[in-house]
C-alpha cells in the first residue's frame, strides 16, 4: 500500500452505486428497509433493471455520511443477492457530482 503525505481526509464513502442480482424474495422493500436503517446511510434507492423468473437485476444507490461497504455486501449476500459490479463510488468530505467536459459535449454532438 502506498502512503502519501496529504491523505488526512476522512476515508468515508458518501455515495455507492451497485449492480446487484437478487432473488425476488426477500423483496426490494425489505432490502431497502434493511439498508436504509444502517448507521451512516441517509437514503437508499433500488431500481429494477431486469426481471427474470426467479431473480431480478437491480441498481442500488445509497447516500450517507459514512457508508460501510462490507456491511452492505454482507446484508445483500444474506438476502441471497450477489454484487455484480460497483458502478459508482463517491467518497471524501464532500459529495462530488459528475461534470460535463467539452469532450463529452463533442461526443454527444457526433452522435
Amino acid at each position: 500500500m502506498l502512503h502519501y503525505d496529504n491523505t488526512h481526509v476522512d476515508k468515508m464513502i458518501r455515495r455507492l452505486v451497485l449492480d446487484v442480482l437478487k432473488p425476488h424474495n426477500p423483496d426490494k422493500i425489505e432490502l431497502s428497509k434493511k439498508l436504509s436503517g444502517l448507521k451512516g446511510v441517509d437514503g437508499v434507492n433500488i431500481i429494477t433493471i431486469e426481471i427474470d423468473k426467479d431473480v431480478e437485476n437491480v441498481k442500488i444507490i445509497m447516500e450517507g455520511p459514512d457508508i460501510h461497504f462490507n456491511t452492505i455486501k454482507k446484508i445483500i449476500e444474506d438476502f441471497g443477492g450477489a454484487i455484480h459490479s460497483i458502478d459508482g463510488v463517491a467518497a471524501g468530505k464532500k459529495l462530488i457530482e459528475d461534470v460535463r467536459t467539452p469532450q463529452d459535449v463533442s461526443t454527444t454532438f457526433l452522435r
Binding site: 442480482l21 432473488p23 424474495n25 426477500p26 427474470d52 423468473k53 426467479d54 431473480v55 449476500e77 444474506d78 438476502f79 441471497g80 443477492g81 450477489a82
Partner: peptide, 16 residues
Amino acid sequence: NNLEKSMLKKLDKSII
C-alpha cells in the same frame, strides 16, 4: 436448488 441455479451461488446460509 432451483433458486441457486438461477443465482449461480449457494444460498443455504442466506436468510432464504
